[in-house]
Design a protein around this nucleic acid. Structure first.
Lengths: 113, 113
DNA sequence: AAAATTGTACTATAATACTAGTACAATAAT
DNA sequence: ATTATTGTACTAGTATTATAGTACAATTTT
């Protein structure tokens, strides 16, 4: 299920800004040649992470971050940070190296904000 | 396959320092009540990431980070950093928030280095 | 109210991953 | 050399997951 990553990517790069509507599950299923239920599951998982919001009969939308419960939002971030830290340390990177690598990567990708 | 994460965790926390030997695939398979081939696969994947080194007939060992090819090592780090950045941005975190959250998380966990 | 649009639930089928058991290959110890 | 130890390859069986197709539920639009 790397579809989740692709959707997050499209959101992160601004292709789908907050409030915008994602393709319908049927549209995306046809486009990617996968099953509508699989798309639905992915949307549901991203919804439970707070990234998306679905409304029956209307569609699936990118959630405005300010509307997300801050506690849940930070919990998700902490989880992925922990995973990152563990992987980096296991590879022998120091904390300093990790921090500077993140800064460098951010600059390279030219991310706004 | 969250076994990979657990092994990385044990390495990161110093339970298995560089050069130390991991349990044999059979030992770990019995202990976790899973199949030896599954353990072998996990070991192989971690080896391809550069974290482990296996030697036929001798066992599987934690690789000394200094022995890892620096290019491959940084490629792995870049990959997980990109994943982190995308997830964080999709959740509406700014780069500044991401960096400070990482610093904070590192301090909280009291990681050496 | 009726029709259209969208996400979801359900069953059956196909594909994938895991398990179990065994045999083999490479290294180390005797 | 022989034996023991360790990781790997292989086949077959099981379980999990994804797919396909259909029907249903909730909302919007007409």
């Amino acid at each position: 299920m790397q579809l989740k990553d692709e959707i997050r990517m499209l959101i992160a790069t601004g292709k789908y800004p907050p409030g915008s509507q994602l393709p319908t599950v049927r549209q995306l299923a046809v486009e990617l040649k996968i099953n509508a239920n699989t798309v639905s599951k992915v949307y549901s998982e991203l919804e439970s992470e707070g990234v998306l919001a679905t409304r029956q009969g209307k569609g699936t939308f990118v959630r405005d971050p300010q509307e997300i419960d801050p506690t849940a939002r930070e919990a998700v971030l902490s989880e992925i940070l922990d995973s990152l830290i563990i992987q980096a340390i296991a590879l022998g990177f120091s904390v300093e190296e990790l921090l500077s690598a993140l800064e460098k990567r951010v600059k390279e990708k030219g991310i706004d904000g």
